Amino acid sequence: MNVGRICIIAFAAICLRAQDLVLAVGITPAQNIFNRIQGTFEKATGIHLVLKDARSPEAWRLLDAGQVEAASGGLTWEDWVASIKAKNLRVPSEEEITRFQIGIDQIQVVTSPDVLLLELGREELQGIFSGKTTNWKQVGGDDAPIVLLLDPTQIATNDTFRGQILGGAPFGPAKWTFPAGVTLVQAVAATSHSIGFAPKASQESLKVNSPVTPAITRPVLLVIKGKKPSASLRRLLDYLESPEGKQLTVR
């Protein structure tokens, strides 16, 4: 085999390995789906997943600018459009995009280990998260102030919870910041008499309590511009529907 042919084969192999599928994904699709399938999908297809961390409005901006091939978020399309408008971004028409539902996520309320309530109803959650209920004694718990923790980075999750539990009303007074690298679930675990919520898939800690609450669910969407996914994206969608893909993901 001559040197020229060897170089051509080597170049082709490099190109094959370098095939990238660039996606803008929020917290929920990353935790529920893409982080879980990245290694096995790449091994099965030779396609390298490049995941850009972006909340729903920023994910659309990146897609609209042509910087990613698809955007994914854990929220309804109506809520996604509302977040786009809130950031004064260009709102896409229905004709220029295609949406795929690639999962369903559950949002779970979590409390610190010293809050021993087994169940919180809708009215109790409304009181706590609106700030009207300020002491655990008011909902059958200890005589201690309620510490409300919220994560400003989980935009879609917060909007979904407000819509389904508070009817869109604002949250009450809460602590919105944590030390760098600390998740909301970890913050709740470490803060006495605290409460918060997060995607169920993110609750890896065994040091929090999860009371029974009304179901809070939302779709996980993947959005593209145009009507036909690329060959690489089509392989991703097919993989997610395969037995292996379904087994690995939280949907």
Rank of each mutant, 00 (worst) to 15 (best):
P57Q: 07
T98R: 13
I84D: 02
G26P: 11
P92I: 02
T40W: 00
S56A: 13
E58F: 14
Q31I: 06
T45I: 04
A65W: 01
S93N: 11
W80T: 10
E95D: 15
E58Q: 10
A44V: 04
I37C: 12
A70H: 12
E78N: 12
A82E: 15
R36L: 05
A13Q: 09
N88S: 14
L23N: 07
A18H: 06
K87Y: 06
E58L: 12
K85H: 11
V81N: 08
W80S: 05
D20Y: 00
K85T: 11
L49E: 08
L75V: 07
A18Y: 08
A18K: 09
I27H: 12
F100G: 03
W77S: 12
A44G: 01
F41W: 03
G103F: 01
L16S: 06
A30V: 12
A86W: 08
D53G: 04
R61P: 01
G39T: 15
V81K: 09
N35Y: 11
E69Y: 03
V68S: 01
T45D: 00
K85S: 11
E94C: 03
A70I: 06
D20T: 14
D53I: 00
R17Y: 07
D105R: 09
W77C: 11
G46T: 04
R99A: 00
T45V: 02
R55T: 11
I27Q: 13
D53Q: 12
I27Y: 10
Q38D: 09
T28C: 11
I47Q: 01
K43W: 10
E58A: 10
A82M: 11
E95L: 14
L62P: 05
E96H: 08
L63K: 02
E96N: 07
V25S: 10
Q38R: 15
D20E: 14
W60V: 05
A18L: 08
G26A: 14
L63S: 08
I47P: 00
I47N: 02
W60M: 08
E42S: 13
V50I: 12
L89M: 00
A30M: 12
K52P: 01
Q67T: 03
S72A: 06
L51W: 00
I37T: 08
R17V: 13
Q38L: 03
L21Q: 03
L75F: 07
I37S: 06
Q19A: 14
T76V: 00
A18S: 15
L21C: 06
D79M: 15
A71T: 03
Q67E: 14
K85V: 01
A18C: 15
L49W: 09
I104N: 15
L75Q: 15
V22P: 07
